[in-house]
Design a protein around this nucleic acid. Structure first.
Length: 417
RNA sequence: CGGGAUAUAGCUCAGUUUGGUAGAGCGCUUGGUUUGGGACCAAGAUGCCGCAGGUUCAAGUCCUGUUAUCCCGACCA
C-alpha cells in the first residue's frame, strides 16, 4: 500500500486524551470521533482489527462454533417476547425508532434474535447441541461513554450462543468455551483472568468475565492468589452472592483479597432456560415431551480488545503491535536520491507476499521516521544517505528496538518469514 | 438522569474580569532552499466567536434559553 492513498493524516502534536492508546490513535489519525461514543477507524487500525477478528474466528471454528450473520435491525415484537423491550427501550439504553411497519431497535445484544433464528434449527433433541457465533456491530445508548473505543455507542462484538438438551451439557460446553477463550487471548499475547461475575440483565445464574489487568480499566476485581480465584467487585457487593461464596469457599474473607484494576474483554454466561422459557424456545426430548432448551452465551468486545492491545503495546513514540495483528510488517522510507530504488524494493516485497507500505508522501526525513513509528510498523526500511554510502539496507526493528544492516537478498529473506 | 465544566481558524488555545476593527502557535497553499530523528526563508488563504433570542449607539465579551462535548456517579463487551 502507498501511504499517500490511505488517508492517514498524522498530527504533529500529541492529542489530548486520558490514556496513551487514544492519544496515539488520534494523533496517528487512526481514530476519528464523529460524535460522543461514535468513532471512525483509519486504514491501519481497521487492518489490525481485521486480523484480530480473524484470530477469534479461526479459534471458534476450530473449537466447533459456526459463524452466522443475524440482523442488527430488529423488530419490537421480538423484544417484547423476552420482556426486555421495556428494560432497554424504557431505560433508554437502546436505540429504537418507528419505521414504516412499526417499531424497531438497533440491537444492543443478540439473545432475542438468535433464539428466533434457532426456532427453525432446533426441533428435536437430535438437533442439539449447536453452537453458533456472529461478529458484528452492537448499539447501546450508553449513559456515559468512556475511554474512546473502550466504551462506545457503536461497537464490534463477537457473540456466540450454544443450545443444549440438558443442564449438564450446557455446563460442559461452558467449560470448554472458557478454554477456547483462554486460547484466543493466548494467541493475542494477552494475559487475562476469568473472574466470577453478576449476570444482571442478561439472565441466568453463573457467569465469568475475562479481565485484562490495566490501570485504564473501569472494573475492579478481587483476587485470592493462594486459591487461584478472582471475583468482580460487584459480585462481592451483592449480599446474596457473597453469602453463596462464603458457603462455597471455606474461610472466605473479602479483606484478604487483592484488588486490581481491569478491562473487561469478554463475558461468558450460563443462561440456562431463562430465554427459552420466555420465548418458547422448545425442543422435543427423547421422552416425546416439549421442553425449553438450555443456553450458554459468550461475548467478546472486539474494539475493547483492540484498544487494550494498543494500550499494552506502545511507547512514547507510537504503537508496537504484536506480530499477529500488526496491520503491516514494514514501511519503506527514502530520500529523493533513492526514490527509484524504494519503488523497486516495494514492488519486489509485494511480489514476495510481504505486507509493506511505501512512504510516498513528501515530508522531511525525520518526519517520515516519526510517522512510521507512530503508525506502528514493526520494521522501518530506511533508504537515506547511509544507503548511498554502503549500499546496505538499514532496518529499524521496533520490537527489539535496534537497527540492522542487510544486503538486498538478506532483506527479502528476513522479511519473508 | 443528578453534580461540575467547556464551546473562538483544520488542530491546540488566548481574548470574556473592565462591551469599542478577530488573535497566536501548529497545520494548509505558492515559490525557493533543504532532506537522518516532526527543516528553513518569503509570500498567502482560512472565522455566522456552537445555535436562538434579549440588553446596548455598539456584544466573542453582559442576560435568558437551547444544543453539543468533556469530567464525577448508576450501566456494560
Amino acid at each position: 500500500m502507498r501511504i499517500s492513498r490511505t488517508g492517514a493524516k498524522t498530527k504533529h502534536s500529541k492529542a489530548q486524551a486520558d490514556n496513551m492508546f487514544q492519544q496515539i490513535l488520534l494523533q496517528a489519525s487512526q481514530l476519528k470521533m464523529h460524535a460522543a461514543g461514535i468513532y471512525g477507524f483509519g486504514h491501519f487500525l481497521i487492518r489490525a482489527r481485521n486480523k484480530l477478528v480473524q484470530i477469534i474466528r479461526k479459534n471458534l471454528e476450530d473449537f466447533g462454533s459456526a459463524e452466522v450473520s443475524l440482523p442488527i435491525l430488529q423488530p419490537k415484537a421480538l423484544w417484547q417476547n423476552s420482556g426486555r423491550w421495556e428494560i432497554f427501550a424504557g431505560g433508554k439504553l437502546m436505540f429504537n425508532f418507528s419505521g414504516r411497519n412499526g417499531d424497531y431497535c438497533l440491537a444492543p445484544t443478540g439473545e432475542e434474535i438468535v433464539l428466533d433464528f434457532a426456532k427453525d434449527a432446533i426441533i428435536s433433541y437430535k438437533d442439539l447441541p449447536i453452537n453458533i457465533f456472529q461478529i458484528g456491530n452492537k448499539y447501546r445508548d450508553e449513559i456515559r461513554v468512556r475511554g474512546g473505543i473502550l466504551r462506545s455507542k457503536e461497537f464490534l462484538m463477537k457473540d456466540a450462543y450454544s443450545f443444549h438438551a440438558s443442564f449438564e451439557d450446557m455446563v460442559l460446553e461452558y467449560e470448554s468455551m472458557k478454554k477456547c477463550y483462554f486460547k484466543i487471548f493466548k494467541d493475542l499475547e494477552m494475559k487475562v483472568v476469568a473472574v466470577k461475575a453478576l449476570n444482571s440483565d442478561m439472565g441466568g445464574n453463573v457467569s465469568e468475565e475475562f479481565m485484562c489487568f490495566s490501570k485504564i480499566g473501569e472494573d475492579k476485581i478481587l483476587i485470592d492468589e493462594a486459591r487461584n480465584l478472582a471475583f468482580n467487585e460487584e459480585i462481592l457487593q451483592n449480599k446474596e452472592k457473597l453469602d453463596e461464596l462464603k458457603k462455597t469457599y471455606e474461610n472466605f474473607n473479602v479483606e484478604d483479597l487483592k484488588k486490581v484494576e481491569c478491562i473487561e474483554l469478554g463475558h461468558i454466561f450460563q443462561l440456562g432456560q431463562h430465554y427459552s422459557k420466555k420465548m418458547q424456545g422448545l425442543f422435543v426430548d427423547v421422552d416425546g415431551v416439549k421442553k425449553p432448551y438450555y443456553m450458554g452465551c459468550y461475548g467478546i468486545g472486539i474494539n475493547r480488545v483492540l484498544g487494550t492491545i494498543c494500550e499494552n503495546n506502545c511507547d512514547e513514540e507510537g504503537l508496537i503491535w504484536p506480530k499477529a495483528i500488526a496491520p503491516y510488517k514494514c514501511v519503506i522510507i527514502y530520500n529523493e536520491n533513492n526514490k527509484n530504488k524504494a519503488e523497486e524494493i516495494y514492488l519486489k516485497l509485494k511480489q514476495h507476499g510481504v505486507e509493506v507500505v511505501l512512504f510516498d508522501k513528501e515530508a522531511g526525513f525525520g518526519s517520515k521516521i516519526k510517522d512510521s513509528k507512530l503508525l506502528g510498523f514493526l520494521y522501518i526500511i530506511i533508504l537515506g544517505n547511509k544507503f548511498n554510502e554502503n549500499g546496505l539496507f538499514e532496518l529499524e526493528d521496533r520490537i527489539n528496538a535496534n537497527k540492522i544492516f542487510l544486503e538486498e537478498e538478506e532483506l527479502f529473506n528476513f522479511l519473508k518469514n
